[in-house]
Amino acid sequence: MNSRKFLSILAIAGTLFVSCSDDDDNPAPVNPEELITTMTITLTAGTDVVTLRVFDEDGQDGPIAPVATVSGNLAANTTYNASIGLLNESVNPADDVREDDVEPEADEHQFFFEAAGGLNVVATYADTEADYPPLTGTNPVGLEFQLETGDASTGTFTVTLRHEPTKPNDGTLAGAGGDTDIAQAFPITIE
């Protein structure tokens, strides 16, 4: 805070003033690092494979709404093994967000599953933080889970990814807190 500093700032200012006419260098685009454009949930029971997929072409900043698709109906009274894939497809090649971001910080992430509208399903976590070494925690993550269907019914199945939730928690969104990275409802029919 002395005159020398002041003068040097003025000198820098002068330089900037001179260099401002340089209009040719264009700024570089920013491709958001945290972007998740695609979540694919693969439900497998023997040879029966059903995929739930949501694709948000332009991410959280863009006006286009995400498109959710369900490849088929689920069978009643069946246990599906489910695995969640996360991609950023706005860049080429696509980023594997699951492998690059979520697995290494599985202790700071958790999926939550909710059925509504009379849908007869129960989701059970099939992984813990220790499945993603070097993490050793015993809290569930939800990248892998089991979905057990009951009798024929229809309704929505909502999948939510939270980061920095309270861990351990009671398995509800309200109890977990944290920030929402993904929140998507899928229309499901069990037949």
Partner: peptide, 9 residues
């Protein structure tokens, strides 16, 4: 609100 994969903003 605008819908995105993170929910509606």
């Amino acid at each position: 609100v605008e819908l995105s994969i993170r929910g509606a903003f």
